[in-house]
Design a protein around this nucleic acid. Structure first.
Lengths: 103, 103
DNA sequence: AAACTATATGAGCATACACTCATATACTAT
DNA sequence: ATAGTATATGAGTGTATGCTCATATAGTTT
């Protein structure tokens, strides 16, 4: 049986990759398809497709077909809270290291 | 040069493991050392030590020596916001799958 | 100093991940 | 039907991760 920590980890594992974070940031405001994301992110098509699959399977993105294309949108805006806090903590850590160098 | 997505990913990668999440939940209220965490989590000492190192290096935990022991505490309570949102999204996803089974 | 306790780390192993190339599938347009 | 476009996936490769066992290091107690 999956514990609560397992469930949280599944979401975070899906998020925890620079390219998947970049995907989410592009989808912050727009709905986009693989074919629009690939050039914007400069990712190989098959690689991007796999990253998107991971995000959809985790429930972070929704997707639907539109003719040839598959469109993607963020399923739950709260995901950006996670990214904001991660950014804040990373910033703090960067500053701490800068101070350590000065001293 | 590290991008903003890289920095966020570093924090999230450090978080994204069930055992590291369990560590944080034990440290939510208390300061604890490896020797107290190990039996509580039923983790091998060396394994736990490595997980703790990852959390410290990411700036998620602070640590200091106290005699033989090394104590750990959460460096920034905002980390729990991340865990709370991850839990909420995971819960939503679980419910969605349950509905899909009923229908 | 010797025995004991707490933590860290090297080595080795199995597994998971990210990536690429080639190919398959699905839909569209002529 | 044919050619073209968008996406998905199999196979292979290199690297990273998580774990364990054994050992090293650091501090404590007698």
């Amino acid at each position: 049986m999956k514990t609560s920590a397992d469930l949280k980890a599944e979401i975070l594992v899906a998020l925890a990759h620079p390219n998947r974070i970049r995907i989410l940031e592009l989808l912050r405001k727009d709905v986009m398809c693989n074919c629009e994301l690939a050039p914007a992110l400069e990712l190989e098509q098959s690689n991007l497709s796999r990253h998107l699959k991971i995000l959809v399977q985790a429930g972070i993105l929704n997707s639907w077909k539109d003719g040839l294309r598959v469109n993607f949108k963020v399923a739950d805006d709260r995901i950006f809270k996670i990214l904001n806090v991660a950014a804040a903590i990373a910033r703090r850590e960067t500053e701490k290291k800068a101070e350590a160098l000065e001293a």
